[in-house]
Design a protein around this nucleic acid. Structure first.
Length: 591
RNA sequence: GGGGUCGUAGUUCAGUUGGUUAGAACGCCGGCCUGUCACGCCGGAGGUCGCGAGUUCGAGUCUCGUCGGCCCCGCCA
């Protein structure tokens, strides 16, 4: 029943026709969006990626017969003149709403079965259905917008780096497994039975080799793979904007990325963002916001109020401080009017989050202090707590005691939930911050040794070098994250280029010379051939686009994403393979 | 690996304390309609209540298991 396109050529897209085109014969090609059959007069909308145009069929009985056959998602060619709509029939909701096509001929190029869901602006279709029929989901306005935004963003990024003398260089997808970091996706080698390639978690080593190779300024928009459990902002394959610069200081990297972000936001119409970005010490981020990726759209912050209780007879809090713990408080502006019920809910929520307890305090309407520990702690201590937390008459403070970091993390979590509930996290505001001075090393209790927090090639901060032996846990790294609205959108470091420091680093990580050689051999060799000081960053492209698009999941900015269980519902991957394929690879499945 | 939540028509949902033939809206099919645009009106079809056990005279509803979607912790820069 379908007809041929033959030599028919599209003259306009479905979003392009305007009043200036009235009288012109046009050819539209697209999908039937909706049909309004009035009997001897049939309207239908033709949709493509550019927009929607109304077509009217009338007078001619053959034409009306064809129009009657039309169903949503049929692919059609419409041939006819553009006509002006009368003033009463203009549709202000359409960009093309002042005109319509008076069909002279309608060719059904392809029919379509009834779609499992309607292609429309407001759809409340379950996500598994959207993913199973992703090609239909992508036809809809939301995904069309997001994918077009993604294209614009990558374009701006490429142009930006090009104008700054960067080279985009591809690095291998089939590469070598490195034991550090995330679990690798492995690809068996047929030629070398029993051996495996790994898909890159990031092109880390390759980009450093490119610096050694004198490429000087490298970037790549590159797919990365990590076989770890998924989240709304984590997919097994995701895209990084990978950047590396020779002879660059941390400040130069920051300035470069700030300019990129500034240009990006302007280019996608989100206005002018403030640069330079704020810089926040890692230790302060954790203490004040309980997170290494604080959402700074709201300025609530945790205060240390340990001093308030040192002289009080509130034994529990006093002992916490005496044994090296801390009392921390989160002042909530305007929280003083919270009902008893709301306070109880907060305490209950703290319990859900694993806290031993949560104490609150505030000024009553009579100026007297109120607190869940007023009796045991005494008015003086509570008043002192309120003052140390900087609480005003209208405010509420939430108090957590114990290990300082644990207390901050609890209050930081409550901070986010309260800010969210009170609407303090404006989705149209974009607040960036650099989180700097990450620790170089992290103590791993399980294996009783230090591991690299970023990666083993991250440079320590110069002034901390002397503490490498005495106090390795306190050494800070030239490592940094870029955080936007509570989302980590990038991270990087200045690398070690001094072989003596690199050797010390391996010692601290308890990696012997033999092991270092087998794991990083070729890279260590390369370092000896004249390595320039260098550093870089990798930006999470999917996350950035999700934030720009106002989406909460990166699945909505990826054309063909996977589910939370790492499955492609449309392609049906992963799947069994033919036993012949396994035999060729000398593999046997235990699955 | 753990916790939470959801699963009923093509879709989105409702379904009372466990009680007759499981409903609504949209969509779909047919009819009518010359200015609709989420067209309207009339009529109709459409159900493995995710799957499997169990309790019960009786299960969409209760219990257990299992599968799948989503969110979170662990894991992961």
């Amino acid at each position: 029943m379908s007809e041929q396109l033959k030599d028919l050529v599209r003259t306009h897209t479905c979003g392009a026709i305007r009043e200036a085109d009235v009288g012109k014969p046009v050819v539209l090609l697209g999908w039937v969006h909706r049909v309004r059959d009035l009997g001897a007069l049939i309207f239908f909308d033709v949709r493509d990626r550019y927009g929607v145009t109304q077509v009217v069929a009338r007078d001619d009985s053959d034409l009306l017969a064809t129009a009657k056959r039309l169903r949503p998602e049929f692919v059609v060619a419409v041939i006819g003149p553009v006509e002006m709509r009368s003033a009463e029939t203009v549709n202000p909701k359409l960009a093309t709403g002042t005109v319509e096509i008076a069909a002279g001929e309608i060719r059904v190029l392809n029919e379509a079965v009834r779609p499992p869901f309607q292609i429309a602006e407001e759809t409340s279709v379950s996500e598994d259905l959207r993913l199973r029929y992703r090609y239909l989901d992508l036809r809809g306005p939301r995904m069309q917008r997001n994918i077009q935004l993604r294209h614009r963003v990558t374009n701006v990024i490429r142009r930006f780096f090009d104008t700054h003398d960067f080279l985009e260089i591809e690095t291998p997808i089939l590469t070598k497994s490195t034991p550090e970091g995330a679990r690798d996706y492995l690809v068996p080698s047929r030629v070398h039975a029993g051996q495996f390639f790994a898909l890159p978690q990031s092109p880390q080593i390759f980009k450093q080799l490119l610096m050694i190779a004198g490429m000087d300024r490298y970037f790549q928009i590159v797919r990365c793979f990590r076989d770890e459990d998924l989240r709304a902002d984590r997919q097994p394959e995701f895209t990084q904007v990978d950047v590396e610069v020779s002879f660059a200081s941390q400040d130069q990297i920051f300035e470069l990325i700030e300019r990129l972000m500034h240009e990006l936001f302007a280019a996608v119409g989100l206005g002018s963002i403030e640069i330079p970005f704020r810089r926040l010490d890692y230790s302060e981020a954790l203490a004040r916001y309980g997170s290494d990726k604080p959402d700074l759209r709201c300025d609530l912050a945790v205060e240390d109020i340990s001093k308030a209780f040192v002289d009080s007879n509130f034994k529990v809090f006093r002992q916490v401080v005496e044994t090296g713990g801390a009392i921390r408080a989160l002042p909530i502006s305007g929280g003083g009017t919270a009902s008893r019920r709301e306070l109880d809910d907060l305490v209950a929520r703290a319990g859900e989050l694993g806290a031993a307890g949560l104490v609150w305090a505030r000024y009553g309407p009579d100026g007297k202090v109120q607190s869940s520990v007023l009796k045991v702690a005494g008015e003086a201590a509570v008043r002192s707590a309120l003052e140390l937390a900087g609480a005003g008459k209208e405010d509420l403070i939430l108090i957590a005691a114990g290990d300082g970091l644990v207390a901050s993390k609890l209050l930081g979590q409550l901070r986010l939930e309260i800010a969210q509930k009170r609407g303090w996290l404006d989705p149209n505001r974009f607040v960036f911050t650099w989180v700097v001075n990450f620790p170089l090393l992290e103590w791993d209790e399980a294996s009783r040794r230090y591991t690299a927090m970023h990666h083993p090639f991250t440079s320590p901060i110069d002034t901390d070098l002397e503490r490498l032996s005495s106090e390795p846990g306190a050494v800070r790294a030239k490592a940094y994250d870029l955080v936007l609205n509570g989302s980590e959108i990038g991270g990087g470091s200045i690398r070690i280029h001094d072989q003596a420091v690199q050797r010390r680093m391996f010692e601290l990580l308890n990696i012997g010379p033999e092991e270092a050689k087998s794991r990083f051999g070729f890279f260590l060799d390369a370092l000896e051939h004249g390595t320039p000081p260098h550093g870089g960053i990798a930006l999470g492209l999917d996350r950035i686009i999700a934030l720009l698009a106002g989406e909460t999941s990166i699945r909505d900015v990826i054309a063909f994403p996977k589910t939370a269980t790492a499955v492609d519902l449309m392609a049906g991957a992963p799947a069994d393979v033919d036993s012949k394929q396994l035999r060729e690879l000398k593999l046997r499945s235990n699955g």
